[in-house]
């Protein structure tokens, strides 16, 4: 299946241009950037026919370098004695999460590209979230499209955390009463140990109930009527639960 690479980032478009220009040349290039920024996918997209070698397996990389004149080496940061690698007259593309030795990298590679993190390319977050939401929908067998809360997407670990937060959002939005009861059951099973726990754990139910009610009905007066409680009681609860 053809690899797809989604980006709106000007920086990545420039990296693509650079790689495309040197595609026919026997030069060594390295793409460096944080984990889960899409480096490997980008290289697979640009060089669909080149063999990939895992830098975690030193002897395999050394053998493949002897046997082939073009190679992609991922996990390059895991290789040892990189100064002894021979890239002469070869097309080498290395993928690395970081630069271990700047001087050696500078000597080994003709082209050094920096892959921007998701934080550095916010224009890609929504595009990627929409793309991965299809995967989430399919793997969770949901029969409705995912509602994405973009401001709650976690990009601290790039695509890895983005996907995780999409799964969390999907689960939150598709859970029924039984799922919630089961979640609470396991939570109580693990945490209950005090002597005043009924009162201590009541906010788990009351806080989301009042927050959602206020968002949905707008006023405390209306909500007190909907919940069937006195509005003074509601006001007191809002204060105790620190609801804005």
């Amino acid at each position: 299946m053809a690899v797809q690479f989604l980006t709106q980032s000007q920086k990545i478009q420039t990296i693509i241009k650079g790689f495309n220009l040197t595609k026919s040349l026997f030069v060594s290039s390295i793409l460096v950037g944080e984990a889960y920024t899409g480096k490997k996918t980008l290289i697979r997209y640009l060089f669909p026919t080149i063999l990939f070698a895992d830098g975690s397996d030193q002897s395999n990389v050394e053998q493949m370098l002897k046997d082939h004149n073009e190679l992609v080496i991922f996990n390059f940061e895991k290789l040892k004695n990189i100064e002894n690698l021979n890239f002469e007259n070869k097309r080498i593309i290395a993928i690395s999460n970081y630069i271990s030795n700047e001087k050696i990298i500078d000597t080994l590679f003709a082209f050094i590209y920096q892959m921007p993190s998701l934080k550095e390319r916010p224009e890609d977050i929504v595009t990627l979230a929409k793309h991965f939401s299809k995967e989430v929908k399919s793997s969770l067998m949901l029969n409705h499209d995912l509602f994405i809360e973009t401001n709650k997407l976690d990009i601290t670990a790039n695509i890895h955390s983005l996907k995780r937060s999409l799964y969390q959002q999907a689960f939150k939005h598709s859970s029924d009463a039984q799922d919630i009861q089961e979640i609470l059951y396991h939570y109580f099973l693990n945490h209950m140990e005090g002597n005043n726990d009924y009162k201590a754990y009541l906010p788990l139910y009351e806080k989301p109930l009042i927050e959602a009610g206020l968002k949905k009905f707008g006023s405390q007066l209306k909500l007190s009527s909907i919940l069937g409680i006195n509005r003074n009681t509601l006001r007191k609860k809002i204060y105790e639960l620190s609801i804005n």
Partner: peptide
């Protein structure tokens, strides 16, 4: 010209 352009592209990235 290809090598020159690729290097200009790399330079413009930074």
């Amino acid at each position: 010209n290809i090598i020159l352009e690729a290097n200009i592209t790399l330079f413009k990235l930074q």
